[in-house]
Design a protein around this nucleic acid. Structure first.
Lengths: 349, 349
DNA sequence: ATGAAAGCGCTAACAC
DNA sequence: GTGTTAGCGCTTTCAT
């Protein structure tokens, strides 16, 4: 079909194996022949066939990126383009390609992952989420296939995994303490899907801070919602229907916060005068809410970048120690948090 | 290494070719042997090797997705996850995988694309953008490699391309007319990067509507900005510094609109009381601006879905006629447009 | 320093 | 219906 290594060999008057060595830039080939072969390549417009290479090499130079089921709107979150940008960036540097999962349901994704590993379609996999008791993660683990997780494995027993994560527990704790310092005591927590480990960690941080402060955790103040924007809106309805309205809200995700703020505006409640809000992620549009939201920057790009780094390391040195990378976070104070005034406290009742 | 077709053949006591035929579910194999072979497969846990298949077949069953250079923030737009979701959905149905470009600059991307086609890494390519005089598009075209474009080719002469697009000209024209009907005459246009064909089309639609209405197009009212959110903010500064401020804004992209609205809020100008805004795309967060923005839904998911459909068609039937698919758009009226009152007209001066 | 040849795992043309 | 065999294009011992 196309021009192959043989054609080049013929033209350069050498053996195919020599051409192969030139491609690999083997030091055992004389500069003279290297030159000649390269010339022949150019003349013929030779380009190595990827599949042939992969087959002979048992290596594809591509990494699989597995997203959560895109059936629901999770995927709409600007979080994903940004992690992928991070992964992309590092993969490109290290000359790895990216293969994307396309499944919409958990089962479809599981099938795809099996295909990727058993069919040797990729050299390693990055999991873009960490769900409690996740089939895919268990499978990869048990297959001993190179993979890294963005987030933390749900089981402490999975100590031999490589993952990159934020200290979500601490972030949530700090954020709660911050609100406490501002005088808030009725602090509600609007979490994401409880199946995701990050949600659990947020929850625990929130709980811990309250406990430390000697404040009872009220069940009515803790709600979880899967859907991003709709969830935010529903959560607000639930929370603001309570006899004792919260004066501050901790929201799992910036996009959700947009929903929260929208609904609050509709109720003619003002942020931060009537209620303070702080959330997580600091995606790019976050600074464009009205008012701009206070949030925790979790360094999404780095999460992706490091995950790719670790994975490729894992691929190159199979026996290597599992590594846990913690990406720092940082509170970004903008305009949705305010000191609680006694007057507001009244009003809230 | 792993279990191959030969192992299965041996166990089932047939020839390797028979096993291959069973995989392809060839009708020329008796049900009896099919059963036997399948059993052997299960017993051994056989899974076909992808690379071997691709090599023998000259077909990879994967499609390359090429994004604009992610170095700048273009990529942050929720537009991309959504097109990809569309592409994903269709590809999955048709059992194609997705391979993503990772290059950050135009040159890097070009190199990658060459690799994909020359290295036979993918069977076809979807271009997620359409830039004026784009190297990649030209290359693909000249190589006669199967590809589809989301957007319209910049050259009318490229009549043999398959692409899926919105009628961006018409959408922009309609939107301008709508503002005109609301009594606005000082209508500004905030466009995206002029290198993108969509920007040109928007521009033309805007111009046409004004001309039809007998209104002169003022150069000061037309600004272009590459960066999404920052661009929106800068544009507002420029526009509102004019002696005669516009009373209405047409913004190329919802995300930009967030920036626009943020800046307007900072200037204490109210939307839609002081200025009306209408924009394009209707990404998911669009309804969560305050106030919720009026925008044109361009059906992003369908753009991706159809692009994948067309491409795979192109791959299966090489000689097929090029096709142009037009995805309908729809104005979504929310709360950022208002009839111009004489009083407002005064104020604007 | 280079060549010959086997093999990566699968498909397909050709036999029977 | 099923087996034989020759590739697909590259890498990699093993010779020399």
């Amino acid at each position: 079909m196309a021009v192959t290594i043989k054609d080049v060999a013929k033209l350069a008057d050498v053996a195919p194996s020599t051409v192969s060595r030139v491609i690999a830039n083997s030091p055992r080939i004389s500069d003279r022949t290297k030159e000649a072969v390269r010339e022949a390549m150019n003349e013929l417009g030779y380009h190595p066939n990827f599949n042939a290479r992969s087959l002979a090499n048992q290596s594809t130079k591509t990494i699989g990126v597995v997203m959560p089921n895109s059936a629901n709107k999770t995927f709409q979150n600007p979080f994903f383009p940004e992690v992928i940008r991070g992964i992309s960036s590092r993969s490109h540097q290290l000359e790895y390609g990216l293969y994307l999962s396309t499944g919409q349901t958990e089962d479809e994704i599981f099938e795809e992952v099996q295909d990727m590993v058993l069919g040797k379609r990729v050299d390693g996999i990055i999991l873009l989420y960490s769900r409690v008791n996740d089939k895919v993660m268990n499978y990869l683990h048990q297959q001993k296939f190179p993979f890294t997780v963005i987030g933390r494995p749900y089981e402490p027993s999975m100590t031999d995994l490589t993952y990159v994560n934020n200290d979500n527990f601490k972030a949530a704790k700090t954020v709660t303490e911050y609100l406490l310092l501002l005088g808030h005591e009725k602090i509600a927590f609007i979490g994401g899907n409880l199946d995701f480990v990050v949600t659990v960690d947020h929850m625990e941080g929130y709980r811990k801070a309250l406990t430390n402060a000697g404040i009872d955790l009220r069940d009515e103040y803790v709600v979880f919602h899967e859907e991003l924007q709709e969830g935010g809106q529903e959560a607000v309805i639930d929370l603001m229907s309570l006899a004792e309205r919260p004066t501050a809200l901790i929201v799992a995700d910036d996009i959700m916060t947009f929903g929260v703020m929208r609904m609050l505006a509709e109720m003619e409640m003002s942020v931060p005068d009537d209620v303070s809000i702080i959330s997580f992620n600091n995606v790019t549009i976050s600074e464009l809410s009205s008012p701009p939201m206070t949030t925790v920057d979790i360094n999404i790009f780095s999460l992706g970048y490091e995950a790719a780094s670790c994975l490729i390391d894992l691929i190159h040195k199979p026996g290597i120690e599992p590594k846990q990378v913690l990406i720092p976070h940082k509170m970004i104070k903008r305009q949705t948090c305010q000191r609680l005034t006694p007057k507001l406290n009244e009003k809230a009742k």
